[in-house]
């Protein structure tokens, strides 16, 4: 091959592309590796000079982190699952109605629901605290599940409405021709076709219930069912907000991050279909 055949620009472009890709990969990977590494280090190591491979790896942070979190992980699971199920129960029929039905005030109602998403929800904390206290929902798992609907329901309706709108009306009509009622056509035809959207919304609702800190912290006293994230906050805060047990913090972060990651991997196909434009 002569020098003339050598596409210098092309090679440079390709090298640059790979360089940028590798840089971005490392940008994500190195902190993750560091988190993993620190979670296996004893305190004397993570307070010393930074290094990636632990000299004397230990499971101490993982065992103490898990022992501290185990009850709270169950609470988080109940809250996340409850939030997802309730959100789906409320929003599937709601979104279907907004997508397929004509009724008075439909547009206004839809935008009113969307508008609720635009305000910072910390505004709601004080009124919800008061109301939940009066209703006996404060410091309870059902209370948190209900509170999350305030911001989960609008985005769920938004996503599902768009999803239902993209489904051809003909299929539903065909099912009715074959003897389905409107409801059974919805249950037997529309819901299975909308499965990717429903799974996606359920996953996002679960993530909200699982990961939220604000409501989880402010709608609990700490003596009742505390989700996992406020416990992580306690590990970050330490005594006076200055002494952080980095090993345990990293282990707890990974422990809390694992269930949603597994859930994502299980539901990956559905999620990708749901978000494919």
């Amino acid at each position: 091959m002569s020098l003339a055949d050598y596409d210098a620009v092309g090679v440079t472009l390709k090298a640059s592309t790979y360089g940028v890709v590798w840089f971005l990969v490392l940008l994500n990977l190195v902190p993750l590796l560091f988190i993993l590494s620190v979670s296996f280090m004893p305190p004397t190591e993570f307070f010393g000079a930074p290094h990636i491979v632990p000299y004397e790896p230990t499971l101490e942070a993982w065992t103490s982190g898990f022992a501290e979190l185990k009850d709270n992980l169950v609470n988080s699971f109940l809250i996340g699952t409850g939030t997802a199920l309730l959100a789906l129960a409320i929003t599937i029929p709601g979104a279907y109605a907004f997508a397929r039905k004509e009724f008075y005030g439909k547009k206004l109602g839809f935008y009113a629901i969307i508008l609720a998403m635009m305000f910072p929800y910390i505004l709601l904390v004080i009124p919800i605290m008061g109301l939940w206290n009066d209703l006996g929902l404060y410091n309870t798992i059902p209370g948190m599940i209900l509170a999350y609907q305030v911001f989960v329901a609008p985005f769920a309706i938004w996503i599902l409405r768009d999803f239902f709108e993209t489904l051809p009306k003909d299929i539903e009509e065909a099912a009715q021709v074959y003897g389905c009622t409107q409801f059974s056509a919805f249950v037997r035809v529309i819901l299975p076709l909308a499965a990717p959207g429903i799974v996606a919304v359920g996953f996002l609702a679960f993530l909200t219930g699982w990961n939220d800190f604000l409501f989880a912290n402010l709608l609990t006293t700490g003596t009742g069912p505390v989700p996992a994230v406020p416990v992580l906050y306690g590990t970050i805060g330490g005594g006076s907000g200055e002494r952080v047990y980095w090993g345990k913090l990293m282990a707890e972060t990974l422990i809390i991050g694992t269930p949603p990651t597994v859930l994502y991997l299980v539901a990956r196909n559905y999620l990708e279909n749901a978000f494919t434009v």
Partner: peptide, 16 residues
């Protein structure tokens, strides 16, 4: 089950 759960059976509601 869901209704029962939401009513507090799964909740750990604390009558402190």
């Amino acid at each position: 089950s869901g209704t029962a759960g939401l009513a507090g059976c799964i909740g750990g509601s604390s009558d402190s």
